[in-house]
Design a protein around this nucleic acid. Structure first.
Lengths: 338, 338
DNA sequence: GTATAAGATGGAACCGGTTCCATCTTCGTC
DNA sequence: GACGAAGATGGAACCGGTTCCATCTTATAC
């Protein structure tokens, strides 16, 4: 039977209030008493029960992270940031994997019920207005990571400046002398209002505009997210008269499809065609893919900071923390063919 | 203020014991009373506090999974199995990421302190004898996933039949007509006693023996786990007089190094050289790498089953659950050159 | 109608902490 | 040395469930 605070009190010959004060580093204890209690704690190998503390504090000291954990490597990296940051705080982290819509609803509903968690992080998931309202009325602070929907307001968020990312990628290609730059992405107008692709595309356009390059509608193609779809779209681009000399894909996965199409056409990379991805997933390094890196790990870290602040300071302001992006230059981009 | 069980009791005009019985589906309640309580629960939107329940039950209803979460994609897949299986039970899952030795110690020590968790899953991590002893003396059931150390005994485990995997891979190559089959792996005798490579190698040898193929010592090379090291080792193999016509690498990561070496030497794959990996990581599919798939998801699933059994039936026997492997044939293996 | 067993119910005590308030010490001041 | 303020301490009450036991109801048998 593990020792309780009362056992310690008895052994040290003090009241239980005093033991509690020692555990919680209260300054209200005389040094001499503190040592005596400390000694009893060690002799009994006493460890306070986190559950009893939670009940008495009326806090769960638990934070939930909800994410489509395994579908995208980027999410794992974000979670790594979350996990590492929570360690060293007094909070426990419960991770929920959400691969399907119905599970998302079930998980979020169960979390917004009172008394299970002190706060939640939603990663790469778009909650409905109703779900947001449930959290609000339950008084559970929320932080969204990687959810850029402008409709979602008055919720703490950590987002990436995708417009800037699109601009950086395009500018990198422009600086290499490319004028005909293709763009392949997911559909810009989907049922989901959450669309980082829209922002990347805006950045792409701004870069071209700033460089005084004329826009050519034929260069922008949109299909589903898969590599296969990107593969087909890339072939369409390469078959154009005046085909692009560079292609910017809105994700590394799609860039891989483009790489395959180029290989199929016998194009040398980057001599004949430059290719840029977006995300810097693990395979990117192996493939030597030039890409745009988001601060994934840091997004998790910042998310936890925001959440802890929201939990501990009830009047904390709502923050939208926008992280910057960075071009990672590898072997798939080079000077434009002259 | 959320409703408590006492509020419900008052509202329904019953004692609190009765409410508790209704919540816990005890049969000891008259149907009529049950309905009355049910109604009060709904009207008050009452949800029992998991924390109070835990304190009173003296159970944490929490399970920990400890894993080097992000270093290997295979671990993520195992965790997926764990997470999905725990959902739907009454337990919460806390995940700990362990990337360094010192963190492993800190995490495991803190977990084996009483009263934090009801059970733990250690994934792809080798605990010390002392750590095992700590769990045992704290009465916390343990399941090891992907830890094949024969020294570790009397602990529930989910392992993979690596000997069989090695045998299957080698047999696949033998069936394609290869006689000179190289083998590249991590060092077989490391400081860590945990060595699936050893078993894979045993399987490789058994397959050769059974096929009546003579062993050639020069074909077995060992280096560190990286792709770069495998790259170098592969070149050594390919430079042999009587070079192997097939190479079996003990991991997909190492197989990628072999692929690079083959490309560097201008070898056609699989016409000139067949290559097999092990693990079936995500990139393997993209590269068309023939490999050996372990039941990763299932290993997580089985791990949870074993753990729950150990938690709920105190006399449950120790089990070592060995999962089988499967060869995934893709494009890097083919008939031996004649 | 009564005796008895079986079933349903109420609530005190408990799980192991925290906190607040009353009480007791200690110390500085004149 | 007396007095008041500040500091230290003890412990009851509480957090919100579960469980056990005593009590009350109902069903069954004769």
């Amino acid at each position: 039977m593990p020792a309780t605070i009362r056992d310690v009190a008895k052994k040290a010959g003090v009241g239980l209030g005093t033991v509690s004060r020692v555990i919680n580093q209260s300054s209200q204890v005389r040094e001499e008493t503190r040592l005596r209690v400390q000694k009893a704690i060690e002799e009994l190998d006493f460890h306070p029960s986190p559950i009893a503390r939670r009940l008495s504090l009326k806090k769960t000291l638990t934070i939930a992270a909800v994410a489509p954990f395994f579908t995208r490597p980027s999410v794992v990296e974000r979670l790594r940031g979350v996990e590492l940051t929570i360690t060293g705080t007094k909070y426990d982290l419960i991770i929920f994997n959400v691969e399907r819509q119905e599970r998302q609803e079930a998980v979020i509903d169960s979390l917004s019920r009172r008394k299970r968690i002190d706060g939640a992080l939603l990663i790469s998931l778009v909650p409905s207005q109703e779900q947001l309202e449930n959290f609000r009325s339950a008084g559970i602070p929320l932080v969204l990571i990687d959810v850029n929907d402008p409709q979602i307001d008055s919720v703490n968020r950590v987002t990436v400046d995708d417009e800037c990312g699109g601009w950086q990628a395009t500018t990198h290609l422009l600086e290499l002398g490319h004028k005909r730059i293709g763009y392949i992405s997911d559909p810009l107008k989907g049922t989901s209002a959450f669309n980082p692709n829209r922002m990347r595309f805006e950045g792409y356009m701004r870069a071209l505009r700033e460089a005084g390059v004329e826009l050519d509608e034929r260069y922008h193609l949109h299909g589903e997210t898969s590599r296969y779809s990107a593969h087909e779209l890339a072939k369409t681009l390469l078959d154009l008269s005046n085909a692009p000399t560079a292609i910017f894909a809105a994700s590394d996965t799609q860039a891989i499809g483009v790489l395959e199409a180029a290989r199929e056409r016998g194009l040398r990379i980057p001599a004949d065609l430059s290719i840029m991805g977006y995300d810097d997933i693990e395979i990117a390094e192996y493939l030597g893919l030039t890409t745009v890196r988001q601060q994934l790990f840091e997004s998790g870290e910042h998310g936890v900071w925001l959440l802890l602040k929201a939990i501990e300071e009830s009047g904390a302001p709502i923050i939208n923390d926008v992280l910057s992006t960075e071009v990672i230059i590898r072997r798939t981009t080079g000077k434009a063919p002259s």
